[in-house]
Design a protein around this nucleic acid. Sequence first.
DNA 1: TTTGACGTTTACGTAAACGTCAACTAAATG
DNA 2: CATTTAGTTGACGTTTACGTAAACGTCAAA
Lengths: 151, 151
Amino acid sequence: MISIMSVAAISSVKTPTPRDAQRIYSIAELSREFAITPRTIRFYEDEGLIKPRRHGTTRLYTVGDRTRLSWILRGKRLGFSLAEIRELLDLYQVDRTGMQQLRELQRRCQLHIADLERKRADLDQHIGEFREVEAQVSAELKQRGIDPEKT
Amino acid sequence: MISIMSVAAISSVKTPTPRDAQRIYSIAELSREFAITPRTIRFYEDEGLIKPRRHGTTRLYTVGDRTRLSWILRGKRLGFSLAEIRELLDLYQVDRTGMQQLRELQRRCQLHIADLERKRADLDQHIGEFREVEAQVSAELKQRGIDPEKT
DNA sequence: TTTGACGTTTACGTAAACGTCAACTAAATG
DNA sequence: CATTTAGTTGACGTTTACGTAAACGTCAAA
């Protein structure tokens, strides 16, 4: 029986750059790539954020799983809780057959976009303030550079 | 002896809109305005994020304190931890007399700005994706609206 | 003078998001 | 075949960011 790790290893030989679909990742590969621990990835699975295939007990991650993971981490960087991230991920794969579901999906998308735009406004203002501080400091440094005092 | 609450009350009579400097806020006022609990505000004080004056044991918040608080909350919305927020707040009032301190301040500003810009890129991509989903859903809804099936 | 609204401190509780063992299995390698 | 090497499942520990309850002080109005 061919081991999973060897499968992952062979496929990684084929593609050092992880870009062909069909690629399979081990938990260690993903944890290295995204600089998180395997524990974290398993934790996300417990929380229902990723559902990798299994070969026996060993987890097998597809390119889709990898994308999903990077999506989760981006969500975290943006300050969303795992619960929120799970909801957002679900928006991508809710049932879109019914008229009612479509409307609901649209509504939730709009709400989330509004939230994101508020966040963007916050961020822009925040950036502006720090640019200003930096500009003041730069000016002051220039002044001092010209001044004979180089304390 | 005049009570603090009455002081706050009187000043609030003078300015229902909180816009003259000299204004004093009670903890309850701020907690209402920002929709957080007094406990939260006290906690931020324990963590060294705000340092209100005191009249006896009672906390008195100035306009500056209020600004600081709104700054903290914006930081939180952007996904920063309280420890990070404290550091950032400190950037506004570090000693800027020495050349060395100025350079250090500049460096930290630049680092933070770079971080913020990464965050902004994340956010833009995130928004883009959700706009796309929304657009697809809208299109689908339009289709169905035209279609005689109105399930 | 008592009630009630608002304030205080102290201290323990809790949910989220992992970290850190321990004890085990299964496969690859010398 | 024994040993690394990677993976697994608990189970308990930890940090962050507050919540909650107790026990009390202070003042204004009734």
